[in-house]
Write a protein that binds this DNA or RNA. Structure first.
Lengths: 165, 165
DNA sequence: TGCCGTCCCATGCTATCCCAAGAATGCCCA
DNA sequence: TGGGCATTCTTGGGATAGCATGGGACGGCA
């Protein structure tokens, strides 16, 4: 599965095309469908989410889980798979941003790609800035630090493996 | 089995014909009966459900399962198989929406196809919007996020494989 | 014989492919 | 260490093919 990192801002031409950042493409090259990415509107933000075929396969499989309640399943099928648009890149590594998705995210001139490991997001650049500012404020307010989070996670992992043994 | 994704809104002409979205057709092309789709009224919504031959075969087979209680079996046989209408597409990839189904879903001018992976639904566009708005409210209210659901599902899957071992 | 459903043909629009060039980056050599 | 060269990436525009949509004609059933 591809790994997406960093932030890139690329231009959207008048046909709605935008280059996938080269780094993302290199990552996609290793997946089972290198020239196809899947886009859908974010559930929680005015932004687009993107992923590769392999991620979608995992997601699809997780929907078969009997532990999901009917509401959640219906929601995912409607809002993710129902909105999901497979876009294939051209020879230059560009994709066409579907109109309804571009509108949803308020993207017209430029698009900011931000890697989120297994998925990435596409934002209108100013909206992304605002979002980041808001998030940073929370970091300060809640006094969050990276080392804290890592420590917490590894403590929890140790606990689980202890139970299992 | 065909996979249906995305949402498409197509026009219904005065003969009741509507184009199957090209993406759906490409998906159907790989199935055992590419020019036939099966339609039936949704159990839960004022909309139509659709699927390909292969899905119906699987569904039919699952009815043979001894785990199914008699009520459920009766319900499916009555409301799915009892209402099922096979429609075949013409050379242009259009189907004729059976009158009673179009009326049931309130479809007249336009029809919205929404992919739901193994099946799809056909809605009157405004009804679909309303349905989505209602669902979205639930997303906000329950504070659901995609990564949350994926995590939950994979945790559950891990739990099951653990039990099995 | 009239009506309805199916088939065939025509057309405007949209998306896809192909070709091309400027800009930025990294590498190599002096 | 600095400048020049080559490669890659991003961006732009034109041509082509596919798709959605509409109307007419033929054949079957009532």
């Amino acid at each position: 599965m591809a790994v997406f990192l960093s932030t890139y801002v690329n231009k959207v031409d008048r046909k709605g095309r935008v280059s996938i950042p080269a780094q993302f493409r290199q990552s996609l090259a290793k997946t089972s469908a290198p020239s196809t990415v899947y886009l859908w509107p974010s559930l929680n933000h005015q932004a687009l989410e993107g992923a590769d075929q392999d991620y979608l396969d995992v997601l699809s499989e997780s929907l078969e889980s009997p532990d999901l309640d009917a509401d959640e399943r219906d929601m995912i099928e409607t809002f993710i798979f129902g909105k999901l648009i497979p876009v294939s890149s051209d020879a230059e590594g560009r994709i066409v941003l579907p109109k309804e998705l571009a509108e949803f995210a308020g993207i017209s001139e430029e698009a900011a790609f931000i890697g989120r490991r297994k998925t990435f997001q596409i934002w209108e650049p100013d909206a992304l800035k605002a979002h980041e500012a808001a998030l940073r404020e929370q970091v300060v307010r809640k006094d969050i630090s990276l080392s804290q989070i890592v420590a917490k996670a590894s403590r929890a992992a140790a606990g689980r493996s202890g139970e299992g043994a």
